[in-house]
Simulated scan of single mutants.
Amino acid sequence: MRRTGTTRRGALTATGALALGAVLTGCGDDDKNQGRSGPVRTEAEAVRAEKALRTAAARTAALTLAHYDLAAEAHPALAEGLAPLRTAVREHTKALSAGAGKAAAPAPPAPGPVSADAKAAVKKLAAAERRRADAHAEALLTAEPELARLLASVAAAAAVHAYLLTELAKETAS
């Protein structure tokens, strides 16, 4: 692998700092509604909202996992390099599905055909990770603090995955 200006340690440090900032932002008084704008939620509404957020986040992660599976199947030479990222996405899916109830195992639609070009397949995978990071970051706006911390962590990890996949695409032969 060629050296870039950004090292893996630097990227992970920056990601950790972002996640820590998101965690500290989510911390506050024990009163869930204090300092929040908008209508006050009942406990049942909060539970339904959390389940809906978890289900949507788990579906997004499962779709990304399907992208990894298709890319590894279409390009066996990439499978070993994608394995650690795929494992992390699988764990994210499990963590997000934990409180989603019966809808925890969404069946995502097939992500479509994988490019015959390995470089293009990795770029498409990086784009899927960017979409996942954006979706989780957007969900932070309405999530309760505990779920917000999880979403922030998963969004940061997805952003790092996107970066690593972008770098891998630069090194992958067409």
Rank of each mutant, 00 (worst) to 15 (best):
A104G: 04
D29R: 14
L141A: 14
A110V: 13
A156Q: 06
A46K: 09
A77R: 09
R149K: 08
R131A: 13
H92W: 01
K170E: 13
K102R: 11
C27K: 05
A98F: 07
A19N: 03
Y163Q: 12
E45A: 15
V23E: 10
A74G: 04
R149W: 04
T93M: 00
G5Q: 04
A103Q: 08
P108Q: 01
A158H: 10
P106S: 01
G5K: 01
A133L: 04
R86P: 01
L96P: 01
A169E: 14
A14N: 09
L151F: 11
R36P: 01
A95D: 12
L165R: 09
A120M: 02
A158T: 12
S115Y: 10
T6L: 13
E91R: 09
L70K: 13
K32G: 11
A137F: 03
A118K: 01
R130M: 07
T166Q: 13
M1D: 11
A127F: 05
T64S: 08
T13C: 11
V23H: 13
T172Y: 00
T7L: 05
L151M: 08
V114G: 00
A158M: 06
T4E: 06
T6M: 08
R130N: 07
T93R: 04
R90L: 12
A46P: 05
K170Q: 11
Q34Y: 10
A158C: 13
K102G: 06
L65T: 13
G99N: 02
Q34G: 00
G16M: 03
D29F: 13
T6Y: 03
A139N: 02
G16R: 04
D134G: 01
A152I: 11
A107S: 08
L18W: 13
T55E: 08
A11L: 15
L140W: 03
R149A: 09
E171S: 14
K119R: 15
E144T: 15
L147E: 08
L85I: 03
P84A: 08
R41S: 05
H67P: 04
R131P: 00
D31S: 01
T166W: 07
E138A: 15
K124P: 11
T6K: 03
S37V: 07
R2Q: 06
P145Q: 12
A105D: 15
V122I: 12
S153L: 15
L164P: 02
L53E: 10
E73M: 09
A118V: 03
Y163M: 12
L24Q: 04
D31M: 00
V122C: 03
L85G: 07
E167S: 05
A19F: 05
A127T: 06
L140Y: 02
A156M: 06
L70Y: 03
